[in-house]
Amino acid sequence: MKTKISFYTIGLILIGLGVVLTIKADLGAGAWDALNVGLSITIGFTVGSWVIIVGIILIFVNALIQHAKPKFLALMTLFLIGFSVDFWMIFVLRNIEFNTLGPQILALVGGILLIAFGVSLYLQSTFPANPIDQLMLSLHERFHMNLMVAKTITELFALLLAFLLSGPIGVGTIIITFLIGPIIQLFNGPVSKRFEALSKK
């Protein structure tokens, strides 16, 4: 159980750091992160707050799609990611700026790797998934969509809203959209083996 909690907590903390680095890189954040930044700029509240608010809305959307009860246990995942994003953005990296292309690229790549590694860690725990990930699964199960098609639909939806709200969309957004899945898959094998080995101790 300790291994599950450790992988889950560390994974979500790393996801928060990765998200902040991709935003700070200023080359275009992931679609959902760009949406949260756009909401923060347009309406107010912190980016982490919008991670939680949008996630809560998606909990009900997922329930509606699946004709099931809302999965409120996912709130635990939401709050940890939201607090992690705000922690890194407000208290740790607040005064850090990447003003030239080299550091911007390094921040973007580092952020993508941290998000992918964090996702591979937290998914080992079998605790409730992020409602964004659950939305893809809900569309897949309800309408028998291919997972890639379902993922593309959810990303395009977030991208459209982010565009309307002047969120940070750029080349980085495209890179994240197409590379994050394969990189998660790359990390998942070694992380799963490590998780299994530690769980047996």
Results as ranks from 00 to 15, higher is better:
V92S: 04
V92Q: 10
L93D: 01
L93C: 10
L93P: 02
N95G: 06
N95T: 09
E97Q: 05
E97V: 10
F98D: 04
N99R: 14
N99D: 14
T100N: 09
T100Q: 07
L101H: 11
L101P: 04
G102H: 06
G102D: 06
Q104S: 12
I105K: 01
L106D: 10
L106W: 13
A107Q: 10
A107T: 11
A107P: 09
L108E: 03
L108A: 03
V109Q: 06
V109L: 15
G110I: 10
G110C: 08
G110H: 07
G110V: 04
I112K: 07
I115H: 02
I115F: 05
A116E: 08
F117H: 00
F117Y: 11
F117E: 00
G118C: 01
V119D: 02
V119R: 03
V119F: 01
S120N: 05
S120E: 00
S120I: 02
S120C: 02
L121R: 03
L121Q: 12
Y122F: 15
Y122Q: 00
L123P: 01
Q124L: 03
Q124V: 07
S125A: 15
S125T: 03
S125D: 08
T126K: 14
F127K: 02
F127P: 01
A129R: 12
N130S: 13
N130W: 02
N130E: 14
I132Q: 04
Q134F: 15
L135P: 00
M136Y: 13
M136C: 14
L137P: 05
L137N: 09
L137M: 15
L137F: 13
S138F: 09
H140P: 03
H140N: 14
H140G: 12
E141V: 04
E141W: 06
R142T: 14
F143Q: 04
H144C: 08
H144Q: 15
M145E: 05
M145D: 05
L147G: 07
L147E: 06
V149D: 08
K151Y: 09
K151Q: 13
K151E: 09
